Amino acid sequence: MLPEEVGDFDREYCLATSEAGETLELTGVLALLRRWQRVTWSSRDERAHRRMLERADRLSAGEVLATEPWSVTRARLGV
């Protein structure tokens, strides 16, 4: 996780644990931890993670970028 992402994790975790305390249901907490685990894996290579975030921002803004299906990416990476 990048230093600037820590605050996002903290806020989301506090909200999820607060909701879990009220509902006695941990599904939201577990989903949050699984999602942030993927962020942590992705950010092991900080430069690649930052590039991915930048491309995601550009795609969200409507820019047309070359992409590939997840199945192609997995095969290329040997995952």
Rank of each mutant, 00 (worst) to 15 (best):
E12K: 07
W36R: 00
G21M: 02
G62F: 12
R44I: 12
R55N: 13
W41F: 14
T27N: 07
T67R: 10
P3T: 03
V29N: 02
S71I: 14
D45A: 02
W36D: 03
R76I: 12
W41C: 13
R50Y: 01
E63N: 09
D10H: 05
L26A: 03
R74C: 15
R74T: 12
R58S: 12
R34S: 13
F9R: 02
H49Y: 11
W36Y: 08
R55I: 04
V64Q: 07
M52I: 11
E68V: 15
A75S: 11
D8C: 08
G62N: 04
G7L: 09
F9V: 05
R38I: 09
E68Q: 15
D8M: 01
W41Q: 09
R58N: 05
V6T: 10
E22M: 05
S60Y: 11
S42R: 10
E19V: 15
T23A: 11
L53T: 06
V72E: 13
L15I: 09
R11S: 03
R34V: 10
V39K: 13
R34F: 05
S18E: 04
E46L: 01
E46I: 08
D57A: 10
L33P: 06
A75Y: 04
A66H: 14
E12T: 00
D57Q: 12
A61L: 00
A56L: 08
T17Y: 04
V64G: 00
A66Q: 15
R76C: 12
T67W: 11
M52P: 02
R35I: 02
A31R: 14
L65V: 08
G78V: 02
L77N: 02
L53E: 11
D10G: 03
E22W: 00
S60Q: 14
T67D: 08
L33C: 09
G78H: 02
A56P: 08
V29M: 01
L32S: 01
P3Y: 04
G28P: 02
T67V: 13
G62P: 05
V72I: 13
A20N: 03
E54S: 13
D10R: 06
T23H: 08
G28Q: 06
S43C: 15
G21E: 04
A56N: 11
A66K: 15
L59Q: 04
A66D: 14
V64I: 07
A66C: 11
L33M: 06
S42C: 13
S18I: 01
R58T: 11
E68A: 15
F9W: 03
G78R: 01
E12Q: 12
M1R: 01
D8T: 02
R38N: 14
E22P: 02
P69V: 01
D8H: 01
V64W: 00
E19M: 12
H49S: 06
R50W: 07
H49P: 04
R38Y: 06
S42K: 07
A31N: 15
T27I: 05
